[in-house]
Amino acid sequence: MDDFGLEGRKRRLLYRSTHRGCKETDILLGAFAERYLALLDEEELVRYEKIVELDDELLYSYVVGHFLGWGFQMQSPALVIGLLHVTFLVGMSFSGFFDLSIKVPFISAMAAHNVGSFFAGVLSALIGTPCSAPFMVSAVSFALLQPGPRSVAIFQVMGLGMALPYLVISCSPGLTRLLPKPGQWMEYLKQFLAFPMYATSAWLLHVLVSQKGIHVLLPTALSIVVVSSGIWFLRVMSSVKMQASKALVVLLPLFIVGSAVYIDRFRGHDHEYGKLAQVEFSEARLARLLRKGKTVFLAVGAEWCLTCKVNEKVLESAPVQSFLRAHGVTYMKADWTNMDSTIAEYLNERGGGGIPFYELYVKGESVGPMPQIFSEKAILEILSKHLNASPNSKVSAE
């Protein structure tokens, strides 16, 4: 019965460490297991079993220093550029400038097989992920650390929740009577929805400029002009020379990808935090302040995180800033707009899988993470509670 004892578990772990199915993780885990597995005690063995349960990609990313946080895909300027083009084109389609599904048989065939619906879901997930962090990051972070079947079950339940309205209507067709009747209003609604898509494009352009600098604005705008011209040409030629339209359907995505790669090569710039007195995050700087017994409010955010930007307006409002100055609180910001393994590692150590993330240190000691969503009144009350002060405290006139 030794197979069920400590030595049996070690033999199974050795086999699983060297037969992962991915050569890189076979080498990483296999070398460790062959050298140290025999030396592990019961508690260490339990920890190693949890590591072995991790997905290969997550494990490899962690080992090489790439920490994956919520919304991390928005840290890629190339992806931001691609999404900017796609959202702008969707807006043009909603505005009635073109309708590829009608003019190009290739696109029509995709729509007939629900491929278009699939990619619409992919687009929604890519853009919407940063905004859903306060509601879903805990469940997803937990799911990624669970064994395969349990992780899949959690994602299935989340998917079931998203699809629940459609399932309810499918099971009770009579509920369709409560839905609005088709009519001309649908066309007006489609045209109106073009403006949120244009607004999303503008926001993505803002994110891109924050990542790479103002000098990427012109090439990005020119790229959008070229793509728009291609759409116009496709609209004109699709009814005359179908072969030309088919070629353009292939060339336009290639041009968008090429533009993303080209613009991504521009050298970025250091992000400027603004005129308020703020301290840029670094582990050494934070440790130095804590050793001195300072009170520090640390905010981790990014330009592509809309929740972060809303909270930032609250934190940088006059009452909150006056309160922080009056009580000698150092306002430290960690900007995760671009990939930064130091910030990612800090979040990982603090159990924060996503952003926004806030933590208050009072006289060198952490009082725990703050809420991810708050109003001006709420954050003042929280700060007052931990600093034993009145939320109406004002900085004295100097």
Rank of each mutant, 00 (worst) to 15 (best):
E376S: 10
G116R: 05
L84T: 10
L383G: 02
L179A: 12
L248Y: 00
A143E: 02
G230R: 04
I27F: 07
W185M: 01
V226E: 02
Y358F: 12
L175W: 03
F374E: 06
L100M: 06
L145F: 11
V367T: 03
F98I: 04
D99P: 04
S141H: 11
F142I: 11
E53L: 02
F32C: 07
H269T: 11
V52L: 07
I51A: 12
F233W: 10
G116Y: 02
P165V: 02
V300T: 00
L100N: 03
F281R: 04
G230S: 01
F94D: 04
R350P: 01
Q73H: 09
A153W: 13
I263V: 06
V296A: 05
E34V: 02
L79Q: 00
V122W: 11
V90M: 08
G274N: 09
L204A: 05
C131R: 15
D3A: 15
R12F: 07
S93H: 12
C305D: 01
F67S: 10
S101R: 14
A112N: 15
P165Y: 03
A334N: 10
A109S: 15
K394G: 09
H327L: 14
Y48C: 09
L175C: 05
S223H: 09
V279A: 03
D3W: 12
V152I: 15
S201R: 14
T337W: 01
H215F: 08
A344E: 06
E280R: 13
M332V: 06
E57F: 09
L286C: 03
S141L: 13
E49G: 11
A244T: 08
M237T: 10
Y361A: 04
F374P: 08
T25P: 03
L254C: 08
R325H: 07
A33Y: 00
A139T: 11
N392Y: 07
G183T: 01
K309F: 00
I373A: 09
L6C: 13
P391Q: 04
M186L: 09
N388G: 11
A199T: 01
P219E: 03
D26N: 12
I169R: 13
L84I: 04
E57R: 14
L167K: 15
K23Q: 05
R285E: 07
V52Q: 01
V152A: 15
G69Y: 04
Q321K: 12
